[in-house]
Design a protein around this nucleic acid. Sequence first.
DNA 1: TTAGGGTTATGG
DNA 2: CCATAACCCTAA
Length: 670
Amino acid sequence: MPRVTPLGASLILEHVLADPSVPAAVVTKLLVALPFPSHPTPRLRRAVLLHHLAADPVSESSLDTLQLLAALPAPASPIAAAHIAVAAYLAVSASDFDVAVGALFARPNGRARLAVDEGGSSALASDEVMTTVDQFEAAVGNSFSQAVLRGLWGDRSATEERVRDLLAAEWAAIGPSLLVQAAERIVGDGAVETWRAADEATRAKLRILAGEERTHEILRKLEEPTSSANPISTPAVEKVINSLKTSCAELHSVVEDPLPAAKAVADEVLAARMEKSVSLDAEEARGQPTTCGTAGPSAPNDKGKGPSTGKPYSLMDWNPTARTFQWEESPGPESSEPSLRRPHLPSPRRAPVSPLPPGENKNRRRRARKWCLLEEETLRQGVEQYGSGNWKDILNNNPDVFIGRTPVDLKDKWRNMINRYRGIVRPPTTEKAADILLEALFSACQNLADEASSLPSEQKEFKLYKQHVDDLHHLAGNYDSVIVCLGAKVRSLPELANKLPLRTCRGVIAEFKLPSDTVEEYGSQSPSILSDAWLAFQGPRSVSIGSTWQWKSENDSSTVSDEESLTAMEELLPKASGVYPRINKWDFVGARAGIRAMPPLTANGSLPLLGCLDDLLGKKSNCTFWLVGGLGARGLLYHGLVGKLTAKAVISCDENIIPSEFTCWNTIKP
DNA sequence: TTAGGGTTATGG
DNA sequence: CCATAACCCTAA
């Protein structure tokens, strides 16, 4: 008996190995025992890679295996997730993160980056994977990012699970072996056509494989005048049959009993057909000899040795692990009782008929990870820069911050952030703009306090009351301290009406826009100008110009009459055109006004009025009153400084914390 | 890819 | 039991 031919070995391996239940030891022995074909079929390559992966799911070498697997036709869908999980795990578990990330993810030649980039396997690529790769690259030298990545990808068992998901999907989709396909031909669908085309000698061989019972069945059908049967390529079928027969003989040398093994394959095919769970259509059947042909090139040298015709021989010559066996070509008595002698040869199951590929339908939920302040701040800036809705841009331009976040996560987070205070401050539908601004201010304060307080015990409670106050002392009973921040309206408090050195000054500001037919816009960066008048540009086509000075005005209305705006323009335009002559190309679109409370001019300039009011008001309770006023129109400039100084002074009950330049207005006491 | 409705996990 | 934050699903 001749040695196992490469073609035969290929068929055996291809059939036996494509089964997850074959123990690793058996796989190894088979691979050692049989000559591995120089051009294995994709199915065999796949089976070997899958066994490799199962034995060693998370390692440097499994990364290679995954990449090879991805290069095979039609890799299972979970492969991208498994590949990035293994690569990421290798990076975060390496002794030197930066070195490992350089080798795996750095541009241009990181091992995993190449695999998922354009030019690499498309099966490994996705937007999400690219994002992760960029995140790793950006994390070099950034211990914060590394820590987050470790948390996300450092779980070995989770990584292994990704690989197992892939294995399950691959095994489920691996399809029938060539032997099974041949068996389909001999005893399954297509049996009648195969037998019809066979000559007497071939039929004798087929009879051995099919068993007496099935042979009679097939022959009976053959007699029926079913003209609808379409004959299939005889040479191709014969090739398969010969292959099958040869490999059965060889299989016999490796496992216990070859004929029952072949029969088992046939029986399984029959069972499968009974269940109607699988059916090969004629098109598929015709294609199979071609598939078989891919194994053909591996066997040109075998031709001379000829097909095995039943000469017994021992594999012991070259393989001590193999067992010798006597091959009987005659159908034994057991052939009529196939079910009694089920072989122990593991056979691949047909892919379960499932609407979805297994492993893809079981989506596990990511563990919720709290957003850190940096992420929130970056999101705020991102929305400002790219606009709300451009989540992907924001994400991809901050790979070092948004680690393990998706664009949808950013969207959801923004939704949470802008809704944060809806339960505390609900803007009434018919509120005036001023009240809405007040609520916005309150929300901003609460937001800041939340961010500053990391511990629950440090949480501060805020309340926003809106009520009319006739008299400061009405507040005294409820508060330790009251800070008066009223601007020009401070005059409306009877206790302070004429006691503060403030002069009111109305100002008008005018808004201009570029005519829509003007193509040329104002500079790319739109710098604003502070001059005799100021020009505050709001983007490239809009500017506000201010301000006029109407001392001692009592008019605090924000609306401006035509007459007043004309006067204001005559005052503002000469000053504006002095620094920006092209203002005459702009259109006036409206004017607004406001009233400011101006402090006295001192040697240090016009400084805000800060400090404790108790001496001024007369101490009538335990409540202390404080003033933040006289900022003129410069609240934006001063609010941070005066707010901080006043807060410190109020908390420590010590006015001296505030520099005397701000409080000296109040030292001139009666 | 995004918007918006829905679900799950967690802490009070 | 509720409110909230993070996350998921799906239509367009």
